[in-house]
Design a binder for these strands. Structure first.
Length: 240
DNA sequence: TAACTTGTTTAAAC
DNA sequence: TGTTTAAACAAGTT
């Protein structure tokens, strides 16, 4: 393959020459970083808000392209241009992530309520804010935090240290279904990030972006408020 | 037009 | 001192 960077500001470090002519050895993920191992080098992406890898070229020119040997390519599109890309020697990956101070993954490894309590139970901050702590549990974003708590029936305002054993178990049970739904949705060819469209028609989430709408579970009106500067959506009817 | 969206880092506050 | 919150940053949409 060959990496073509069209927007130089995307590439944070490394050299595209290091992956030229190499074969894909592995595609994997750490927290919110998709990784593509290519020979002795690894491409490290962070998609931020709107970054996505697509097979079909969209309306806008991509920020980068991965040219495959058969002449086709995978485009890296990113409307808001917050995404980042590093070309690292695979030997340097460990040091790269060590600097990020990422906690353990909540998925796909099965995690029980006791595990969640051990990771976040000591935090005084509200549980919704605690879910965003990448150094405690890696990979959950602002949307996931609201969605998981809704699925678990837990109020976002409760201090993490006050969450009960039963509630941690509910959070543990709610996490895989949310992530699996989100991943399945993101793999659709016509996937559009929520904020790219003001239409609610394509909103795949239960409460996120649905302020004023009816709760899918109890029909109470979905509410929105801000915690630590980030929007939280929840149902006052069924999230105790 | 100014507010809003994301995750991360840094600065400030508690 | 340790923990938590706010602000800043990226750039584009509405």
């Amino acid at each position: 393959m060959r990496l073509e960077v069209l927007d130089a500001s995307l590439l944070k470090s490394g050299d595209v020459k290091d992956v030229a002519g190499e074969r894909v050895l592995r595609a994997w993920r750490r927290a919110k970083y998709p990784l593509l191992e290519l020979g002795p080098a690894t491409l490290v992406f962070h998609l931020r808000m709107t970054g996505k890898l697509v097979r079909a070229e969209g309306k806008r020119p991509p920020r980068a392209r991965l040219h495959l040997d058969d002449g086709s390519f995978v485009g890296f599109e990113d409307v808001r241009r917050f995404a980042e890309l590093w070309v690292l020697h695979t030997d340097d990956l460990e040091a790269f992530f060590a600097g990020k101070k990422l906690g353990p993954e909540p998925w796909p490894t099965a995690r029980g309520g006791a595990w969640w309590a051990g990771q976040l139970g000591g935090l005084k901050s509200p549980v919704k804010t605690a879910l965003l702590r990448q150094d405690k549990v890696a990979g959950l974003g602002n949307i996931a935090a609201s969605e998981i708590l809704w699925r678990a029936g837990v109020s976002p305002s409760i201090a993490a240290s006050a969450i009960t054993t039963e509630q941690w178990s509910a959070i543990a049970a709610a996490t895989p279904p949310h992530l699996e739904m989100a991943l399945k949705d993101a793999m659709q060819e016509d996937f559009v990030y929520l904020t790219e469209s003001k239409s609610q028609a394509n909103n795949p989430f239960r409460v996120y972006g649905r302020e004023g709408g009816g709760c899918p579970r109890c029909d109470e009106t979905i509410a929105r408020f801000v915690q630590s500067g980030r929007a939280t959506f929840w149902c006052p009817g069924c999230q105790a």
